[in-house]
Simulated scan of single mutants.
Amino acid sequence: MLGLNEEEERAYRLLVRAHETDAEGLADELGTTTEAAAATLAGMRGAGLAREVTAGRYAPVAPELALGPRLAHNQERLDRARQTVALLADEHRAGLRRRDADHLIEVLPSRAALREQVRRLQDGAREEVLAFCRAGHVVMPSQDNTEELEALGRGVAYRVIYEQALLEEPGMVANVAYGIKLGEQSRAVRTLPVRMMIYDRAVALLPLVQHAGGLTETTAALVRDSSLLDALIALFEAQWERATPIRSPEEGQVTDALQRCPLDSDELYLLSLLVAGVPEKTIASQLGLSLRTVQRRVYHLMRLAGAQTRMQLAWHAARERWL
């Protein structure tokens, strides 16, 4: 790998061990003629592997000086080769996408295949996962998505938009709060157009049939780098901008606006659920409170905001950037 042939490598190793030798001594060690050994030593001297200390006697040049530059040169060549392979691979994938749509969109024919891809892609995510979560699970309940918890633990960012009806399902408010505590950024909208997950902005996964019957197997699409993927990312960002942030009591995020906010963390959480459209009755049941207690806390929020209606409360919270 350093550009030495077998005889040069043996001769250099022997020279390093002996520290100093002549052609006759090297010939005895290599089992060759004195003339051949002398030629080898002369070649090693020319290659910077050996130096002549006295007439006819040679010592090795230190390995870091003799072989270090060769190693650095080979590393540069290897790096250039890797870059070339990466460019060729990009060109190859681009050609496949132009000529064969199967390499752009892969159809997953079953619920089991979709579940496996959700698991594999989250396990392989390195930077960011974007998700639309609609009511009524297709593959698994949100509580069973343990891969998200592991990904959050290794530093993958999650931005998730929840459909209002999903937040009304039993256990979801607590589940979302736990995800936020671990680092998930959560927002809510009244309705979402599609279920979807996007991994590292490189691949998207979404069901192709929104309302399959009980006897119909789920079919999904795996969309790779393309203009279609760019459109799905733009769709997510547009929904993210209009969605309402959900703040958990354990979130612990402090901004200038929150520092000026008169609400404590529990009140902010209640306010974010109200603005997201979750009914007071659902909030009460999921938080283990009575409806009267929730209504009393909502009235307290309205009094702090100087609002007469819940709509005015939401408007005031938006104007003051409480959420």
Results as ranks from 00 to 15, higher is better:
residue 2 L to H: 10
residue 5 N to M: 05
residue 11 A to N: 07
residue 12 Y to S: 00
residue 12 Y to T: 01
residue 15 L to W: 05
residue 17 R to C: 09
residue 22 D to Q: 07
residue 23 A to E: 01
residue 25 G to W: 07
residue 27 A to H: 01
residue 29 E to N: 07
residue 32 T to R: 09
residue 32 T to Q: 06
residue 37 A to P: 02
residue 41 L to R: 01
residue 45 R to F: 06
residue 46 G to Q: 14
residue 52 E to D: 00
residue 65 L to I: 13
residue 67 L to E: 01
residue 68 G to H: 02
residue 73 H to N: 14
residue 74 N to I: 13
residue 75 Q to G: 11
residue 79 D to A: 15
residue 79 D to C: 10
residue 80 R to W: 05
residue 80 R to L: 08
residue 80 R to P: 00
residue 81 A to G: 03
residue 85 V to S: 05
residue 86 A to P: 02
residue 87 L to Y: 04
residue 88 L to W: 01
residue 90 D to C: 00
residue 90 D to H: 00
residue 92 H to L: 15
residue 92 H to I: 13
residue 93 R to G: 06
residue 94 A to F: 05
residue 95 G to K: 10
residue 95 G to A: 12
residue 98 R to A: 15
residue 100 D to R: 15
residue 103 H to C: 04
residue 106 E to R: 11
residue 109 P to L: 10
residue 113 A to M: 05
residue 118 V to N: 04
residue 119 R to A: 04
residue 123 D to P: 12
residue 128 E to G: 09
residue 131 A to P: 00
residue 131 A to N: 05
residue 133 C to S: 11
residue 136 G to A: 09
residue 139 V to T: 04
residue 141 P to G: 11
residue 144 D to C: 08
residue 151 A to R: 03
residue 153 G to K: 06
residue 154 R to E: 07
residue 156 V to Y: 02
residue 164 Q to I: 06
residue 169 E to D: 04
residue 172 M to A: 13
residue 177 A to G: 11
residue 179 G to C: 12
residue 185 Q to G: 05
residue 188 A to H: 02
residue 192 L to F: 12
residue 192 L to T: 10
residue 196 M to W: 03
residue 197 M to H: 12
residue 201 R to V: 04
residue 202 A to G: 14
residue 203 V to R: 03
residue 204 A to R: 00
residue 215 L to A: 14
residue 219 T to E: 06
residue 221 A to G: 03
residue 226 S to T: 09
residue 227 S to N: 15
residue 231 A to R: 11
residue 233 I to V: 09
residue 234 A to Y: 09
residue 236 F to G: 00
residue 237 E to H: 05
residue 239 Q to L: 13
residue 239 Q to A: 12
residue 239 Q to V: 10
residue 240 W to Q: 03
residue 241 E to D: 12
residue 242 R to A: 08
residue 243 A to F: 06
residue 246 I to R: 02
residue 246 I to T: 00
residue 248 S to C: 08
residue 253 Q to H: 13
residue 253 Q to L: 15
residue 258 L to T: 08
residue 262 P to V: 09
residue 265 S to Y: 11
residue 267 E to Y: 02
residue 269 Y to K: 09
residue 272 S to R: 06
residue 272 S to G: 08
residue 274 L to R: 08
residue 281 K to T: 06
residue 285 S to P: 04
residue 305 A to V: 06
residue 305 A to G: 06
residue 306 G to T: 05
residue 309 T to Q: 05
residue 310 R to M: 13
residue 310 R to C: 11
residue 310 R to I: 11
residue 311 M to P: 02
residue 312 Q to K: 11
residue 313 L to T: 00
residue 313 L to Y: 01
residue 316 H to W: 14
residue 318 A to K: 11
residue 319 R to T: 13
residue 321 R to W: 07
residue 323 L to C: 03
